[in-house]
Amino acid sequence: MYRWDFAPVAAHLDLLAIGLFNTLRLTGAALAFGVALGLGLALMRLSRRPWAAWPAGLVIEVFRTTPPLVQLFWFYFAAPLVVGVEMTPYLAALVTFSIQSAAFFAEVFRAGIESIERGQWDAARALGMNRGQALRRIVLPQAVKRMIPAFMERAIELMKTTTLVATISYADLLFAANEVSQKTFRPLETYTAVALAYFTVIYGASLLARRIELRLARSGEGTVG
């Protein structure tokens, strides 16, 4: 019978803590860039000008039809040679997950914007607003509220996806676990502890998301996504 011993793992808690911090930092940064970029992609895709709509559609489709890990490898190993810049694991991960989230958010934004009734656009235009004003003042504020659940779901997905960066040696929580497990010769305890750590953080985020969603549903606003 195997005797569990978490003490060696606990001795390296600092490493794991730094890993967790890096995971959260990457998630947060990719989320922020992803939202901004996603809005841009959505507006391009909704545009009536084909030279704007078409490339946006292409980016969205390419990122939806390739596995995240392949994207990450491409940006880490291939992109530096194409662009001629040094790529750190963090930068490669940030670029990959930002664009990938943007492709996802673009569709959420698009669905959100399209879910706003025509009458809202009519009323804004009848007041003399141009398209940008109508979008900023009238349509987006309403659409964003409906998109919140999809955003939160994506944020949680993203946190799980960030584990892929361990494969290009960025020191996230999973990579830290790998290191600790090699130092302590305690893979069972290390990976179990780290799995539970992920579960705690992600489950906590899910519960929070569910509560917010429930509150939104009660305030009578529909959701999309």
Partner: peptide
Amino acid sequence: NTPVLVQII
């Protein structure tokens, strides 16, 4: 609520 990669590993 846990990452697949963590599960595989």
